[in-house]
Design a binder for these strands. Structure first.
Lengths: 210, 210
DNA sequence: ATCGCCTCTCTATCGGTGATAGAGAGAATC
DNA sequence: GATTCTCTCTATCACCGATAGAGAGGCGAT
């Protein structure tokens, strides 16, 4: 099978799924493609370009179809949905948020921003506020998923972790986490509640617009 | 001079300042300390622990003194100030946001969360909402600074970047960025405006509390 | 038809990375 | 004085991104 950029990126995503971002090395990727690693450098200038291509692929997978809101839909709900989709795209692959934050100039991310900002402008929100709102939502979402996907500290490190002392020094944090582990609650609920904060603020800052 | 964990971390921060996170290698760090690199492994279990220690050092530098708000101060203003300080801490060092997001179980970060959540609880905000608000502010801030510190794409990559086509496909984004470069505006203004969105939402979601 | 160019992959190698094994120096303790 | 503990060393591992440069094969122009 011919080796081209598209096939390289597709296999890189598969490798990401199998081993995480640190497992995506030029050698392993080349091996999967039945090729020697320097060959990849004929198709890609460097590894950063590969990561950006992976980021675009991840986003494209979830944002293949992007559409503005229905006329009767509140932009708040539509923007929430966009953020939920962005999160879903990042969670769909190990280290998805790291991949996006390590990528440079992702075309798809730019397209998402364009759609979101123009949608808000079409709802009579001033351009500057539209940009502020969209950036806030995007950066919060990436920051949040980055934390969600942070590696669990290994058991070795936990051995000299004094839980009693931690609880003593951080009672509120511990109580809040305990609440968060209440039966029936999921990580999705936490994201949704945080997102509601951001969207509520966006509504305030957007002025009295619909 | 005796080599201990504290001196290692201090020198690691200096190395971070000089060369960025990718420049922080065990060999370079050891060389600065006048020592061979395996020696470091007597004081640290692995590099991840070093990064976490650097993260704590960066935060400690800005959050040496942490105090709850004055009784007459709105918690919104106090929380804004906390976020501004967090951002300042991250911006004070190259790749500061990457360091914090790569760190695991930072004690100082936990202390910041504890202070913020307990402060909100003391202002009669329900525990769960307090946690949601604090997490939102923290993760937005890290996400934002992560973007602020993202490396500028090298000139090589920009050579085949078609600005005209980009403007054509993303007119709103380009217009928004142009507005952002208006004279007198700084990157600090953008952060402040985004933060205002988050804080406004926090105020809404906190209910009718002070 | 053949010569030369172009596209793509190869081998060989470079300098660098985090990490481990195990020797050994020197101080502290018994 | 012998032993043990603390700390640093040398030597080495497997692996990483990246480059130089050879060479195979197709394709077009002569």
């Amino acid at each position: 099978m011919a080796l081209d950029r598209q096939r390289i990126v597709a296999e890189a995503v598969a490798l990401l799924d199998a081993e995480g971002l640190d497992g995506v090395t030029t050698r392993k990727l080349a091996a999967r493609l039945g090729v020697q690693s320097p060959t990849l450098y004929w198709h890609l200038p460097n590894k950063a370009a590969l990561v950006t291509a992976i980021a675009d692929a991840i986003l494209d997978q979830e944002f293949g179809d992007m559409s503005p809101p229905e006329p009767d839909q509140h932009w708040q709900d539509w923007l929430s949905g966009l953020a939920e989709r962005l999160r879903r795209a990042l969670l769909a692959h190990p280290d998805g948020a790291r991949v996006i934050s390590a990528s440079q100039l992702s075309r798809t991310m730019a397209a998402i921003s364009e759609l979101a900002m123009s949608t808000l402008v079409a709802r009579d929100i001033p351009l500057r506020q539209a940009r502020v709102i969209v950036l806030t939502v995007e950066r919060f979402t990436v920051g949040h998923v980055l934390e969600e996907q942070a590696p669990r500290p290994d058991t070795e490190a936990l051995k000299d972790f004094d839980m009693a002392a931690f609880t003593d020094q951080h009672p509120t944090v511990v109580a809040a986490i305990a609440d968060y582990f209440r039966p029936g609650r999921t990580v999705d609920d936490l994201f949704r509640e945080c997102l509601e904060v951001v969207i509520a603020g966006a509504a305030v800052k957007a002025g009295a617009n619909s």
